[in-house]
Amino acid sequence: MSFWEYANPRRFMAVTDRVVGPSFVLAGVLITTGLIWGFFFTPDDFRQGSTVKIIYLHVPSAMMAINIWIMMLVTSLVWLIRRHHVSALAAKAAAPIGVTMTLIALFTGAVWGQPMWGTYWAWDPRLTSFLILFLFYLGYMALWAAIEDPDTAADLTSILCLVGSVFALLSRYAVNFWNQGLHQGASLSLDKEENISDVFWFPLLACIAGFILLFIALVLLRTRTEIRARRLHAITLRERSA
């Protein structure tokens, strides 16, 4: 059996019906564990005090904000190349979640930035790139909302996602060139020297896994909704013409 079997909406519905519930539960457990562990049972950082606890929300949401866009890029490509409707609908379903993640990353970053850098907002490359990413999400969702015919909307938003990805990457390098930042480097690199210490690392890992699972659960649920909405649309059209 090939992976593409899931592109059949009926098969997709049957399989995801069993997956959505458990992933919600598992995501809930992981996020609750990670956040409680992080919030109550990790020490304060010697320089940053208790604000270091914001990392358990900031890093996972920022990771998801980028990864959701990449997932949308992949599903858009699948739609453009193989014309599987489920793929296009999954991209549509993912965008609002991506926007929420970007907002959380920006918000927690601002709240963290105020005591640490003395400002809610700085035109730092990382912050600026996220703001631009936020604008890309908005444009993408607005284009989906504006077009009535579902296939046209899927095609045009996929093209926008492709072109947008190139420009988002370009903007990332442009803002790097434009301003040197306040933001620290990667928190999670394989380089042990650069990495944050183990005490923070395990609850953070739980939160990241939880956010990923939460995204999977949400995107499947929303894709199912989109498939149902599409079927509902087809039935109403048939009723009207009958």
Partner: peptide
């Protein structure tokens, strides 16, 4: 700050 970040 911390509780605001969590709540939000």
């Amino acid at each position: 700050e911390v509780s605001l970040a969590y709540a939000g």
